[in-house]
Simulated scan of single mutants.
Amino acid sequence: MPRFILRTQINTPIEVCFDLARSIDLHLDTMKHTGETAIAGVTSGLIGLDETVTWKARHFGIMMTLTSKITECSSPLIFTDEMVTGPSKMMKHRHLFEQKQGYTLMTDEFVYQSPWGILGKLADALFLRKYMQNLIKHRNEVIRQKAESTTYPSHENPGTTLKKKD
């Protein structure tokens, strides 16, 4: 089963990163190149525990539909989405957040199992694993850019705002 871990440093408070990563609207922005739309379940705003979203997108020239459910959510430290129905045998994506000195470390743990037996394993080795990594890297970069380019209320000092220093 292919598995990978990606880490992204974001110069914004943990709560902001957690909410941006759960944002259906931001996810749609990160996947414009696939024509992705949210067609059922939570289709805008923030998704939470036990909620589902059904996505429709074009990958490898094929229109695909995938429904995922948030199976774990502990703000602002972790949430997990798992495929309920879709093109893979199994897909699980854990999103972990750690507040470090002056930044948030966002960690993605992604595991999936391709269909089609040996042909699926060959596709994983040849291109699918790298394709999935690149999708999540792109998504994380958009999250980082959005998080670092916006002013947010300070959670430590109410009444003040935080913004990335230029």
Results as ranks from 00 to 15, higher is better:
Ile47Tyr: 00
Ala21Trp: 07
Ser75Trp: 12
Gln113Asp: 11
His138Cys: 02
His33Leu: 09
Ile5Arg: 10
Asp19Ile: 09
Ile78Tyr: 11
Glu141Phe: 13
Ser88Phe: 15
Gln101Ala: 15
Pro115Arg: 15
Thr54Phe: 14
Glu72Pro: 10
Thr30Tyr: 02
Gln9Met: 14
Phe18Asn: 04
Lys92Ala: 05
Thr43Arg: 14
Gln9Trp: 05
Lys130Asn: 13
Arg58Ser: 13
Ser23Phe: 10
His27Trp: 01
Leu126Asp: 05
Met90Gly: 07
Pro76Gln: 03
Leu46Gln: 05
Tyr131Met: 11
Glu72Gly: 01
Leu66Asp: 10
Val142Phe: 00
Ser44Asp: 13
Lys92His: 11
Asp108Tyr: 01
Gly48Glu: 12
Phe79Val: 02
Arg144Cys: 10
Thr8Ala: 03
Thr65Ser: 08
Ile78Asn: 03
Phe110Gly: 06
Phe79Asn: 03
Asp124Arg: 05
Tyr131Asp: 10
Phe79Met: 05
Thr52Tyr: 12
Phe18Ala: 08
Gly61Met: 00
Thr8His: 02
Leu126Met: 09
Gly45His: 01
Ala38Pro: 03
His95Ala: 00
Ile24Leu: 01
Met64Cys: 14
Ile136His: 09
Leu46Val: 06
Trp116Asp: 13
Thr12Ala: 15
Met83Tyr: 09
Leu20Gly: 06
Arg58Lys: 15
Gln133Asn: 07
Leu128Arg: 03
Ser68Ile: 08
Ile70Ala: 00
Ser88Gln: 15
Ala125Lys: 13
Gly86Ser: 07
His93Ile: 00
Cys17His: 06
Val53His: 14
Arg7Gln: 15
Phe127Lys: 07
Gln113Ser: 10
Ala38Lys: 06
Glu51Asp: 06
Ser23His: 01
Phe127Tyr: 10
His93Asn: 09
Leu6Trp: 00
Thr30Asp: 05
Glu51Leu: 03
Leu26Gln: 12
Thr107Phe: 02
Leu128His: 09
Leu20Cys: 03
Thr65Pro: 04
Thr34Glu: 13
Leu6Gly: 00
Glu82Leu: 04
Asp81Met: 09
Ile78Trp: 07
Ser68His: 14
Thr85Lys: 02
Arg22Gly: 04
Tyr112His: 03
Glu141Arg: 15
Gly45Phe: 01
Ser75Tyr: 15
Thr37Val: 11
Ala38Trp: 04
Gln101Gly: 13
Ile39Ala: 02
Thr67Gly: 05
Ser114Thr: 11
Thr43Tyr: 08
Met106Gln: 02
Val111Phe: 14
Ile70Gly: 02
Asp81Asn: 06
Ala40Gly: 04
Met90Tyr: 14
Thr30Met: 08
Phe18Gln: 07
Thr71Ala: 06
Ser44Ile: 08
Phe79Ala: 03
Asp124Gln: 01
Lys89Tyr: 07
Arg144Lys: 12
Val142Thr: 08
Ile136Lys: 08
Leu135Lys: 13
Leu66Gln: 11
Leu119Ser: 11
Met64Tyr: 13
Trp55Pro: 02
Tyr112Lys: 08
Leu77Pro: 01
Gly41Pro: 09
Ala40Trp: 08
Lys121Ile: 08
Ile14Cys: 12
Gly35Gln: 00
Glu51Pro: 07
Lys130Glu: 15
Gly86Val: 04
Asp81Gly: 02
Lys130Met: 07
His93Gln: 09
Gln133Phe: 05
Thr43Gln: 12
